[in-house]
Each structure stands twice: as C-alpha cells, then as structure tokens.
C-alpha cells in the first residue's frame, strides 16, 4: 500500500524574514527591507533532511519545540511552502509536481488563524466546499452538520471577525473537514481551546480517523499526543530524532523513571557515584542540577541522598516523574516542553 504521506530528505532554508511580516515592519514596497548583504545573513535552516513515512488511516503526531520545523513540514506537504530540496508526497502524488491533484486530497488547518473575515461562519464553510466543486444542497447540509458538531450553530450567521479565538479555531477545523479530505493536516489544533472543547476536538478527530482518513497533527501537548496518536515523530532542528508509537517511545527512554535533583553544588564525583547505583541507566549533570534516568523512582531517593552527603553536598530539591512522553522529549531535546 502506498504511504499516505512520504517525505524524503526535505530541506528548507528561509533566506529572508516572512514576506508579510517584512511588509509590516519595513517600509520597502518590494520585499526584503534593508541592504541586500544583510538579508543574506538571516538565513535560517528550518528543515535539515527530514524523512517521514506515514501509513494510511493513522493519526500521526509531529512533536517538537518552537522552531523545530513542524509548521514548515506541514507547509511543504500542503503546497504552501516551497522546499529547498527533497521530495514530498501525499497518497503517492508529488505535492510539488502535481499541486492541484494534491490539493484535492488534503484539508489543512494552519497554525495562524486565516478565516475569511468578510464572510459569516456558514458562508465560510459553504464557499470552501464550493471551491471543491460540491453542489449547493450538499454544501448547506454538511455545513449545518459541522456547525452543530463544533457547537457553533448559534453564531453561524455572524461575521467571524467577532468570534473568540477558540471559536475561530473550531471553525477552521470544521472548514478543513468540509470537503472530506483523505488526509487532514492540523497544525496545533488545540491551541486556544478550553479543556472541555479540547476533549470534543479529540473525539471529532478520532471519529474522522475511523472513517479511514489519515490525520497529521502537530502539538506541544504530550497528553494530546499520547491520547490521540498511534504514531509519533519527535523533530528538533529540522530533523526527526525519534519515531514510533507512544508506548514504544516511552519504553525507549533509558530506565523510564526520571529523577531531577538539585544539590547545593556541582560535583563530577557525585555524578559518577550516582551512575554506579543499581537501576540507574543514565545521569546527566548540569551544574547543581542532575537528571537521573532509572528503572525505579522513590526507592532510589535514599541512595541519592546518601551519595550526596558522601560528596559533601546537600539535596535541595527532588522531583520524580513516571515514564512519559514528557520525559522522552526532555531526553531527546534537552528541553522541557513546559518551559
């Protein structure tokens, strides 16, 4: 079976600030502000050889810190960002060779809201479907269904410029589903949603996926990735650094438990000592803070305290977390998502 989404060695180098951001900040009518030499320096490597294979009918999660290249990946797969090099395919169709065919297969929710402010919610859905050649009776029916599903019926005939952020987000997702795309791209779909609406969204995404559709979503929320996705890729600096099902990924963390401890000082001998403790698989020291990956949590703390006093240091703070994607993320990127 052909993969639903396939990328090979995708690279994207942005060589100037975003064109519309420049239009606002700068005052030059023809694009890049400032002298040409300066513009060259602001080269950003957003993707650095990203390869993905996503099977049909899965909910795939793309996780990564800010600036990792998630939106750029989605942009390339949805004809909105031209790759510097590499291949991108959706359902076997090369996105950059057959744009129109590819666009027929996809539905997209971009990270920045981009609703048509001149229209009402119902008109937005209806016109969207019209662009895809859907007849007016079917359009009206499907729009009404989706408005109901996303709890927007009572505001359906208002202009969307008066909508709250969460309402706009819901409408954007409804719009992307209007033409029943084979592959749905959701770039941070749950930002700005209250907890209850987030649960509603999860339910809707699962439902959509049950009808055999592929969903690619990006998120910073580990709970969301864990709850929704059957496969996950963690990206950082434009590369995939881990790939698998949530369970596989959690098991791949050395030890599983993470003990983050802070001491009254830094000591290499302490770190070395901790590495010797039974059950400890990895120790990362950074000044007074030490991360210990181990196969047990609480029972190890006594031994840690002992080791610290042996090195002449006091334990100031300790935090134990169970195996989770959060720890996995920290392990791979050195950064916590919550920071």
């Amino acid at each position: 079976m052909t993969a639903s989404i396939r990328t090979r060695d995708l690279r994207k180098v942005y060589d100037s600030p975003a064109p519309f951001a420049a239009g606002i900040a700068g005052y030059s009518p023809m694009g890049t502000p400032g002298p040409k030499g300066k513009a060259k320096k602001s080269e950003v490597i957003a993707l650095d050889g990203l390869s993905l294979d996503i099977e049909p009918g899965v909910i795939f999660g793309l996780l990564g810190p800010n600036g990792a290249g998630k939106s750029t990946t989605v942009g390339i797969l949805t004809t909105r960002v031209r790759p510097t090099s590499g291949d991108a395919q959706v359902c076997g169709i090369d996105v950059w060779k057959e744009q129109v065919r590819a666009k027929r297969l996809i539905g997209v929710v971009q990270q920045r809201p981009n609703l048509d402010f001149s229209l009402t919610a119902r008109e937005i859905l209806s016109f969207h479907a019209a662009y895809f050649g859907i007849g007016s009776a079917e359009r009206a029916k499907h729009a009404a269904e989706l408005l109901e599903r996303f709890q927007l019926s009572s505001r359906a005939d208002e202009l969307v410029r008066g909508f709250s952020g969460g309402m706009m987000q819901r409408l954007s997702i409804a719009r992307a589903m209007m033409h029943n795309p084979q592959v749905l791209f959701l770039d941070e779909p749950s930002t700005g949603l209250d907890p209850q609406t987030r649960l509603l969204l999860w339910e809707i995404i699962r439902e959509y996926n049950k009808s055999g559709k592929t969903v690619l979503l990006t998120t910073h929320n580990m709970e969301e990735a864990d709850a929704l996705c059957s496969r996950i890729a963690i990206v950082d600096h434009g590369k995939t650094i881990a790939l698998g099902s949530p369970t596989e990924l959690k098991q791949s963390i050395p030890g599983g438990y993470l003990i983050r401890a802070r001491f009254s000082g830094a000591s290499e001998t302490l770190a070395a000592k901790l590495r010797q403790l039974p059950g400890v698989s990895e120790v990362n020291a950074d000044g007074g803070g030490i991360d210990i990956y181990a196969s047990r949590g609480g029972p190890l703390v006594g031994a840690v305290v002992e080791a610290a006093s042996g090195a002449g240091l006091d334990l100031l703070d300790v935090h134990i977390s169970e195996p989770s994607l959060e720890n996995l993320f920290l392990h791979h990127t050195g950064r916590s998502l919550r920071q």
């Binding site: 519309f20 239009g23 909105r80 997209v108 920045r112 981009n114 609703l115 662009y131 895809f132």
Partner: peptide
Amino acid sequence: IAEFQFSREIEDRLLAPMAI
C-alpha cells in the same frame, strides 16, 4: 492587501484545487 496581511484570508483559496 487585506487578504495577504496578518489574517492571511486568501489562504483558503490558495488551497483550493486550482492552480494559484
């Protein structure tokens, strides 16, 4: 100008199955 601004209202039409 408005559609290309922050709101990027034009985006939905750029994603329609038609050459841009």
